[in-house]
Design a protein around this nucleic acid. Structure first.
Lengths: 194, 194
DNA sequence: TTAGAAAGTCAACACTTGTTGACAAACGGA
DNA sequence: TCCGTTTGTCAACAAGTGTTGACTTTCTAA
């Protein structure tokens, strides 16, 4: 019984995972509108109706595909002078590291033209970025640092991985860490001298 | 004859401009895919077929709507220490100033999921941003500064005007000028100390 | 006034989209 | 073996897309 149930579940869950994998790939490459359910189904070698059966709708499929966990480090634990460098190094891991998934690409690609993706990306900011950055520095200044850091990092991701601006693509990791790292450092630790 | 011709042209060009205005509004609000020709036509109180008659296709309509001229100032003419502030002030004028058109919004909104918009945005960078920024600083370092500046400014535009991240929306002009301005200043003038 | 061009309307085309329901095959437990 | 659930296929729907061509109206030049 347990084995049967497990076997059944694993059977259906394998194609389920198959579909989700294809969806993540296509959503990342073409965005929400550009990736049709038929495309996803073809990529998973399956009938379009199955995509709807496993995920109730295209929206729900996208929601499942757009899950992101940044795994940002606890900034309180590290040298205050190294926060900027820590953040930019984690950024490079998220986008280029061996374990990097397409999650952020999916979100960023569609967030400009799809309300749901935009809301999801705002949630990532509110739940994962803001609390981490706010843990260092003036609590009264809560959002400012996180907002500035996000604007720089999302802009860098956009220019380097989606828009592919040649000079931004050409930047080496060292250049990015040095230049952007120090900018982030200032955003996070520098008081907003009025 | 001249008057007649002028009158005719002005007649047809008025609706032409009407269509283009509606298109710019909708492309800015909803992106390339989200704004249908029928939507544009309805907004211009005209038949969808007229949109095609005046602009040959949706792509061409978009191309006409997505024209951008940043009017960046010549950086060689100003105090080297004020370049960052100059850039960020111009940025705020482009996006929030009284004469600000939806051009950049149109481009940015669609550039993540539409190849043509992406190419057009890269052209804006290559033709309008890069030469201006490259005019100051090491020519061997040509693209780096312009790339970093663009990543920060496009990221800021994205977070503030499209994604509308609350803390970034809440930033005052003064805060933006102070914080981002000094970051830009470093990107442009600081040598890349290896 | 009248012929002709210009401006605008209407219906339809071919196609793609997300989604659904009816049906067939595979499979596991009794 | 046989029944029932799971897994999958097929065709179709209703809606929306960009685009086209035939048609009518409007207006101007001769």
């Amino acid at each position: 019984m347990t084995q049967n149930q497990a076997k059944k579940i694993s059977k259906s869950d394998r194609t389920r995972a198959h579909i989700l994998e294809a969806a993540r790939l296509l959503f990342a490459e073409r965005g929400y509108d550009g990736a049709s359910i038929r495309d996803v189904a073809a990529h998973a070698s399956i009938d379009p109706a199955m995509v709807i059966r496993y995920f109730r709708s295209k929206d729900e499929l996208f929601a499942r595909a757009a899950v992101v966990d940044l795994h940002l480090p606890e900034l309180r634990m590290i040298d205050r002078a190294a926060i900027g460098e820590t953040l930019i190094r984690r950024f490079l891991e998220i986008w280029e590291g061996p374990a990097s998934g397409p999650g952020m690409t999916i979100l960023l690609r569609s967030a400009m033209s799809n309300d749901f993706a935009a809301e999801k990306l705002r949630e990532v900011f509110a739940n994962q970025v803001r609390p981490v950055v706010a843990a260092v520095g003036d609590p009264a200044d809560a959002g400012r640092g996180a907002g500035l850091v996000s604007s720089q990092l999302l802009g860098l991701a956009m220019c380097r991985y989606l828009l592919r601006l040649p000079p931004v693509v050409a930047l080496s990791h060292d250049e990015i860490i040095r230049n952007v790292g120090s900018a982030l450092q200032r955003y996070v630790t520098e008081e907003d001298l009025s």
